[in-house]
Design a protein around this nucleic acid. Structure first.
Lengths: 177, 177
DNA sequence: TATTGTTATACTCTATAACTATA
DNA sequence: TATAGTTATAGAGTATAACAATA
């Protein structure tokens, strides 16, 4: 939550650092020593992807502040709801979370009574995962917040058609790149 | 470099864990206990964005293996080349890197003789940044690798027009979301 | 007093090895 | 022996406070 704006501070000060400049023959009006040229960076897939992802996660956290759910926690609740009765390994690996790292995440959800581990009777090594009633209720509220505050914002920004195109392209990149 | 595939291992083993299931009344053929349903997750902006970003960074690292450049290092070289004579604070903040964290990154580039810190004569607190000749040469090679191996792959996957549309939408999300 | 680069530090994510209890 | 969950641990990435030199 302390993430937001830390990268915009250095502004009005040295207005004559034209000494280290080399052959920068861009059309620069007087007093333009502040703004840096991003250049090819703004066309780099990885760069814009990372910046966009940070912004989106930041917005997600703000939208979910009342429920205290991170993107990772939300994805676990969604996946367990859709696939009740699966074990930790299955849920974790589907989300790209390593099993050791999934333990603390689950401990958190379980301590908040959102999710339950149930020892499987078939294979007593496994912990079957299920949402609690509270977990189902919280997830329902979370979905509403995401839809109305988070995803709706993307619609406002890009329009319905572009929003769908963006998701589709990102899915393709995620699975085939 | 040890990042790649760690999350896809649990596959052929328990084919009869159909006991913990509750009211999963999806059309499931026999022996379909392996694949989980992603459900709404596959439509979640943050989810696909993060997955895509990981894939793209992974591919970037593979493409750059011969030059040993990370996405962050590449972005610093690009920005310093485009804006020679700027100081650490300016370069770092433009990239969203905090000044304390920029020190080690620069130490690395400087130790490899790709970038140089030059004490400013105007303001002796500042370190002006410039690419060395080797840094310029390495960056030129890096750009070629990125263009031919990395960005070209996106063209193959989405097509030129869609690639440009994707970058444009991500830029918009990054700056306006 | 304020700013630049820096150190120290902490917290989150991510990754691997190894333990235990089961199979 | 192999697997599920767990612990311990290490490494990145990211965040803040505070210091020395300089303004």
């Amino acid at each position: 939550m302390t993430v937001s704006k830390t990268a915009e501070k250095s502004s009005e000060k040295s207005g004559e650092a034209t000494k280290g400049r080399k052959d920068a023959s861009e059309p620069q009006g007087p007093g333009s020593a502040e703004a840096l040229q991003l250049g090819e960076l703004s066309e780099q897939l990885g760069y814009v992807l990372k910046r966009a992802q940070l912004k989106v996660f930041e917005n997600f956290l703000r939208c979910m502040a009342s429920l205290q759910l991170t993107p990772a926690q939300f994805s676990v609740l969604l996946l367990v709801e859709k696939n009740p009765g699966r074990n930790q390994t299955e849920i974790a690996s589907t989300l790209g979370i390593l099993r050791p790292n999934f333990v603390a995440l689950l401990d958190n959800l379980e301590s908040r009574d959102l999710c339950a581990r149930i020892r499987s009777t078939n294979d007593r090594r496994s912990h079957i995962l299920m949402l609690t009633d509270k977990g189902k209720a919280v997830l329902a509220r979370a979905k509403k917040l995401v839809a109305t505050k988070h995803e709706a914002r993307l619609n406002d920004l890009l329009g319905q058609a572009n929003r769908e195109a963006l998701i589709a392209m990102l899915s393709k990149v995620a699975s085939e790149f």
